[in-house]
Simulated assay, not measured.
Amino acid sequence: MFKFLKKLILVIIIANILFIALGIFFNPPITWTQLGGIIKYGKLERDYISYDDMGNNVKKAVIASEDQLFFTHNGFDTKAIEKALKHNEKKGEIRRGGSTISQQTAKNVFLWQGRSWFRKGLEVVYTFIIEKVWGKDVILARYLNSIEMGQGVFGVEAASNYYFGKSAKDLTKSEAAWIAVVLPNPKKYDPKNPTPYLRKKHNWVMRQMNNIVLK
């Protein structure tokens, strides 16, 4: 039994190393979240595209909405994490994560959805590694290709076609902002039928996009 466990651990380690190395060049064949989308909605709308084919508007919109310090932090936003920890201590459970785009990429590419401390710990490890191995452009590309952006809809290209009938590179500033604002809860929010809160967030993201400089 002990020998079997040792071999299993070794296989898992080697598989992870290969997955991380290949991730520099390729998008994930499928993720746990995407599998969940297939099971729940009976579909997987996804179209991987290159970083250059995404266009600048959607990159700026998502960074403005999710992680404005993306290009300057080391994968972790310490101030956001401190706020999240204080909030979670009051609630007695994990309700906020303070997650950066790098952390969300680690979660969506390698892990599963959930709020356990164990998954959060793995997320920290993967985030540290991809920051060192992949770099910012690859992380952002994998994030924008794999993130859930609607019910069974994954990635900016599929979302652009689903919501606006066009490619991501052709999105206007306003359209890109609409896609970005659904990210906190893509199963609930809908740019085609926005709530007052979503309209307010959209206007805020539009303003913040003016401050984003792509590297």
Rank of each mutant, 00 (worst) to 15 (best):
A84I: 06
K192W: 15
S160E: 05
I38L: 11
K43S: 13
E157G: 00
D53K: 14
W117C: 08
N193Y: 14
I49C: 14
K7T: 06
I63K: 00
N193Q: 13
K169P: 02
K86Y: 11
N185P: 00
K169F: 06
F164R: 04
T195H: 10
G42P: 05
L144K: 03
G92L: 07
L85N: 07
D47E: 12
M1L: 15
E45Q: 15
R115I: 10
G55L: 06
F110G: 01
F110D: 00
I38P: 00
G121I: 09
G37F: 00
K6D: 09
E157N: 13
A15E: 11
F26S: 06
E148R: 15
I101V: 10
I14K: 13
K120G: 10
K60I: 03
M149K: 01
D137V: 03
P194M: 07
S65E: 09
A80M: 14
S99I: 04
L198H: 01
N74V: 09
A177M: 04
D52E: 13
S167V: 12
T127C: 08
G165D: 08
K136G: 03
K43Q: 11
L5S: 11
R142D: 05
F164S: 08
G114P: 13
K132A: 06
F70D: 00
W178E: 11
L198W: 00
M209Q: 05
Y143M: 14
M1A: 09
A180N: 05
L140A: 01
N185C: 06
A168G: 04
N211K: 14
A106F: 10
M149C: 09
P186L: 09
L18D: 13
D190A: 07
T172V: 11
L214V: 12
N203H: 12
N57I: 02
F164M: 14
P196G: 04
E123R: 15
R115D: 12
G23D: 02
A15I: 06
W32G: 05
V138G: 00
S50C: 04
S102L: 08
E82P: 01
K90W: 04
E123H: 10
G55M: 04
K136A: 03
R95C: 12
D137E: 14
A64R: 03
K86V: 07
K107L: 06
K173R: 12
I129A: 05
P184S: 11
I12E: 08
K120N: 12
F164A: 03
Y48F: 07
A64E: 03
V156L: 12
N16H: 08
R115H: 14
